[in-house]
Design a protein around this nucleic acid. Structure first.
Lengths: 343, 343
DNA sequence: CTGCCGCGATGAACCGATTCAAACCAGAGC
DNA sequence: GCTCTGGTTTGAATCGGTTCATCGCGGCAG
């Protein structure tokens, strides 16, 4: 099988022209049934596989999507990615998955690479909100959808979840459970999602008519398990411990849970914990974790659908900013025992 | 920025021929410094981005790798993928990540798609051991490396971890801790890795001079948290419970741990648990999980390096079958208290 | 019998970058 | 002054499909 099989080889064997073979592949209906069968037989016999880059070069349309996420190690993003992949392959597209690792430089590198590949469209969770990468792509005629990140710009599609509302849900719940000293563990300063969740948390305090100092902030350098552990140790070292922690992310919450349980702190009796994302490991933790669920799969699916729609009809495309609603899932980690005598 | 910028536009602006622009891009050393600067300036001014598919068509060499894994939801594979991505981008390659979800049909679909893309090489953790997909790719001139799967075939590269030895380590440890009734929770029948770990487990029993019925097998329908939960419930329902469980995978182990802890079983006093893969969540579990660590990152890196090496010099390439050694990481979940009076 | 119609098939031009034989040019050597 | 040399630059051919104007042919109306 040394010489690669091309469309000419197929044409030769089926005794038709190359144009006809191409038609069988792309517009089977214009080819007579008998001819079509003959060509398909030749394709099968030779084991021909279409050269996609050549097709793309001539036709100008790619069958590839780019997906740039903040952290492939975070199950939230892998679930989003699965949704994207599902919708993409239904539409006959491949997905190039890139991991920016929360680094703007790496994001930039991946975006340039995707542009060079002339992908059909790009789904991106930007590292920073400035939208440099999305703009750069659009200037080069590539459709972009912001993923898990809202935008006010009317000329950009976005799919997001209402993080502010999610934060509000979490803290409202903690206040209702009778918590008095809540710490929110957020991410690094630039992370938009974490900042919004914090705003929502403050809203909840205000709406409950409580003084602002009920809620304190503890920033973590990254949104992963290791940083959660460290945050937990910091809190344990305090003279006055909080009675509840709201983490910007389940990874942080799981790390924090580990640190506290190991130190003998009872969860939720001594300390209530709420996470965010409701990843599968949250329910599977030894103390099942209360968390704010996001429709991750739907998020990926709709983002992919939007970018495919946009790139197929760029002219009459209406840019849309979709916002999904999060949902609180209460589990053991935040269910405080009612005081005796209460109903 | 309506009309896409091509190499001709750059040539025109820099007042050189298209050949020279191409040389600046691919063999900068043959171009005079002054000319080179002029061309680079034009590229920057116009915001030119190379059309990779066109390059690939003419030159015949792609800058893209395909990676097909069993389950992107499993942190083991995402860590492997990170290693692959790291090595690939150092060599200037993009990675198309595909998820077979342990389905042979989906694997086949992805493999055909990668072949159509004319990727430079493919790294694949095959769903079945028959090697249909790898062979099919090789017949079409695409380099293949088996990932996390050994092979006896001398004409295929592979990178694997000694699963049999890993299984032996795990069960030897449990026996040394004094466990008498061990259950191994394996995966579905076809999964090669799980089967090897089971063989290793039996080796351990034999080498310790114990009767074979010390070790019992409980197959799970898939290697995920949900199946681990179910397996745990099954074991709890038994009249005679085992005193140790070895899971083919950390996801199973975490699910099982959750089920048992929730039911009030003490880990490790009543039940010792050992997992496999040593994913980050294993250490962060409420009862830190003893596990068999695999060099996942290295696995990905070396596999990528191998496939790049093979596809760059297919002629003199020597196929290699690499096997890494796993390592037991003992944590709380299997550390049984010594009986009083012992040293 | 002739002319027209339309379905199917044809094949050459083309997409954008790479490649390479050939042209070009400046300076060295005779 | 002329040739030779080595470093640069040129431009046409090329990669493998897609596209589309064109052609062949059988059937049908006039």
């Amino acid at each position: 099988m040394k010489p690669p099989i091309g469309i000419r080889d197929v044409a030769l064997r089926a005794d038709v022209s190359v144009g006809t073979v191409s038609n069988v592949l792309n517009r089977p209906d214009v080819v007579a049934a008998a001819t079509r069968e003959r060509v398909l037989a030749a394709i099968a016999a030779l084991g021909y596989v279409r050269n996609e880059p050549a097709r793309q070069l001539r036709s100008g349309t790619a069958r590839t999507l780019g997906l740039v996420v903040l952290d492939v190690g975070n199950p939230f993003f892998t679930d989003v990615a699965r949704g994207v992949e599902e919708a993409a392959s239904e539409a006959g597209h491949a997905v190039i998955l890139c991991n920016s690792g929360e680094s703007a430089d790496r994001e930039r590198g991946h975006v340039e690479l995707l542009a060079a590949q002339r992908v059909h469209g790009v789904l991106i969770t930007p590292v920073r909100s400035g939208q440099a990468s999305p703009r750069w792509l659009r200037e080069r005629g590539i459709s972009v959808v912001l993923l898990d990140h809202p935008t006010a710009e009317p000329d950009l599609c976005s799919v997001a979840v209402d993080d502010r509302h999610g934060g509000e849900l979490a803290v409202t719940h903690l206040l209702a459970e009778g918590c008095e000293r809540i710490v929110m563990v957020t991410g690094p300063a630039g992370v938009h999602q974490a900042a919004e969740r914090h705003r929502g948390a403050r809203d909840a305090v205000r709406l409950a008519g409580r003084p602002p100092d009920v809620l304190e902030v503890l920033p973590a350098p990254a949104l992963n398990v290791a940083c959660g552990l460290r945050a937990g140790e910091q809190l344990l070292a305090r003279a006055v411990r909080p009675d509840a922690v709201f983490c910007a992310n389940d990874l942080l919450a799981l790390g924090l849970l580990q640190a506290t349980v190991r130190a003998g702190v009872r969860v939720p009796e001594d300390l209530a914990i709420v996470g965010y994302d409701d990843i599968d490991f949250a329910a599977a933790a030894a103390v099942p974790l209360t968390s704010v669920r996001q429709p991750r799969h739907e998020l990926g699916r709709t983002a992919a659908a939007l970018v495919i729609a946009e790139s197929q009809a760029p002219a009459e495309h209406e840019h849309r900013q979709l916002v999904f609603m999060p949902e609180l899932v209460v589990r053991e980690s935040s269910r405080r025992p009612r005081r005796a005598g209460w109903p």
